[in-house]
Computed example of a mutant assay.
Amino acid sequence: MNITGKTIIGFFIVIIGCFVLGLSLFPIETSNTLYTVVAITALTATASFLFGLVTNDYSWTDRLWSTTPVGYAWIYAYAGSFNTAVTTTAVLVTIWGARLTFNFARRDGYTGGEDYRWPILRNKIGNPLYWQLFNLLFIAVYQQALFICFTLPLFVLSQTPGASMGLFAWIGVLLMLSFLTIETVADQQQYTFQQSKYGLMEKQKDYEEDYKKGFKTGGLFAISRHPNYLGELGVWWSIYLIGAANVGSIFHWSILGPIMLTLLFMGSTIFTEGITKEKYPEYSLYQKKVWPIFPKLWR
């Protein structure tokens, strides 16, 4: 089934309905807001799974990655009576979400079909029943549960009396914006390379060697094979720091969020690079020279 603009609009109307129903079942004023967010996630995960069944497109969770966490951030901001710390962090999450939504949209992520990795994995799994179980348990439930996990610092801020922006919280803000800049630059470099590689943009002289190889190795990709992953992880570890600064401990149970996200990206790197190595013979040499996510600080 071709994913049209009308299908996308219909999907997001359903998602808005999930938010309304979740907020109705667990009102912010009388409920623990974590229960509210869990209820919303259960509904959105179910909707994503069902849309995958109907459309045979399994990127519905991908289409929520930059939007649903923003909604959660402002639910927590409201629950925290818009204290300075949670509101500041909600604004940061909104900036993150707006940038990611723009990048996803210009790559035709909403109407351009599902993530290229899903058909490959679907063929590897083979059995349709097993694939639907994977769709339900990993794509829909696990990944959307991550939305809850990596926004947990905002829940903590909403529940912390007198949460404010002290020195370490502001350091978290600066780190978050720095990592967001890294992610933005990396995405732009990759976008320019891919667009020019396929003739959708004028060829770049600086990319001639990379055109021959078939993949990006210059710019930020000279120090990290996935600098966009580095930026994304840095964003959420920085937001964790803002929360931790307000509870007075660098180790807090909300660290579960950035840890789970890090594990997801590690797994994604292994799977994605397995595909890339089969497609581009020189990628193995690149792997030996450049670390996967975190830059090698020595040569």
Rank of each mutant, 00 (worst) to 15 (best):
N135G: 04
N135D: 07
N135Y: 12
L136V: 04
L136Y: 11
L136Q: 09
F138Y: 13
F138D: 01
F138M: 07
F138R: 03
I139S: 06
I139M: 12
A140H: 10
A140M: 10
A140V: 10
A140W: 06
V141Y: 11
Y142S: 15
Y142T: 10
Y142E: 10
Y142G: 08
Q143S: 08
Q144M: 13
Q144P: 00
Q144R: 08
Q144N: 14
A145D: 03
L146T: 12
L146G: 15
L146N: 13
F147K: 05
I148N: 08
I148C: 07
C149A: 15
C149G: 11
F150E: 02
F150M: 08
F150G: 11
T151P: 10
T151N: 05
L152D: 04
P153M: 12
P153E: 10
P153N: 11
P153T: 13
L154Q: 14
F155D: 02
F155N: 04
F155I: 05
F155G: 00
V156P: 04
V156R: 14
V156G: 03
V156Y: 10
L157Q: 11
L157E: 12
S158F: 00
S158K: 02
S158Q: 05
S158R: 00
T160Q: 15
P161I: 02
G162S: 03
G162R: 04
G162E: 02
G162K: 10
A163Y: 09
A163D: 08
A163I: 09
S164I: 05
S164Y: 14
G166L: 12
G166W: 04
G166C: 03
L167T: 15
L167S: 13
L167D: 12
F168K: 02
F168I: 14
A169V: 05
I171A: 13
I171C: 02
I171F: 09
G172R: 06
G172V: 09
V173R: 01
V173Q: 04
L174N: 00
L174P: 00
L175T: 03
L175Q: 00
L175A: 09
M176D: 04
M176Y: 10
M176F: 12
M176G: 09
S178R: 01
F179T: 05
F179V: 05
L180Y: 02
L180V: 03
L180G: 03
L180C: 01
